[in-house]
């Protein structure tokens, strides 16, 4: 019985306490370090080129087949990434591709703002993946 009265006063006190709620569009929850979001193609800070050479290992690794990579040979026999497409609707954010990448050319950003009306918009091209949205934390 005493506990019931205590519970009553807990509820009563809650009215005057600060709510735990994070007011979403204004405040944002800081996502912890190393959290797995959308893939991000790393850019070499010196030459401003994409590190990825398009070897296609991530394509083989990915169980869902959500990555498509194509490489193109430039002059002097140098191989350059031609096309890198990520199908978000298939991705399960397991992070295996990052782990297996030998060039260390991709990482996972903190990007979670992903809902789309059209399923076609969920396919991200190279230009969108390079965007530095994920380099610093992009919550929400």
């Amino acid at each position: 019985m005493l506990r019931l009265i205590k519970n009553f006063f807990i509820v009563f006190g809650n009215i005057f306490r600060k709510p735990h709620t994070i007011i979403y569009p204004r405040e944002r929850i800081i996502i912890p370090d190393g959290s797995r979001g959308v893939l991000h193609l790393k850019v070499d800070p010196d030459s401003l080129e994409i590190i990825c050479k398009g070897c296609g290992l991530c394509k083989i690794i990915c169980s869902q087949g959500c990555i498509t990579v194509q490489k193109r040979a430039e002059d002097k026999g140098r191989e350059v990434l031609d096309e890198f497409c990520l199908d978000l609707s298939k991705c399960i954010f397991c992070g295996n591709c990052v782990e297996f990448c030998k060039m260390n050319a991709i990482d996972m950003s903190y990007k979670y703002q992903l809902a789309e009306f059209d399923k076609k918009n969920l396919k991200l091209e190279k230009t969108e993946l390079v965007k530095p949205s994920g380099t610093i934390r992009d919550f929400w």
Binding site: P32, D33, S35, R36, F93, C94
Partner: peptide
């Protein structure tokens, strides 16, 4: 879950254990 996420990188599906050890 926040502690877990800071360790593994995901809230629900960790994909963290590897054969012979852990990922990170």
């Amino acid at each position: 879950l926040r502690i877990i996420e800071s360790i593994t990188g995901s809230r629900i599906v960790p994909n963290f254990i590897r054969i012979g050890g852990v990922k990170k």
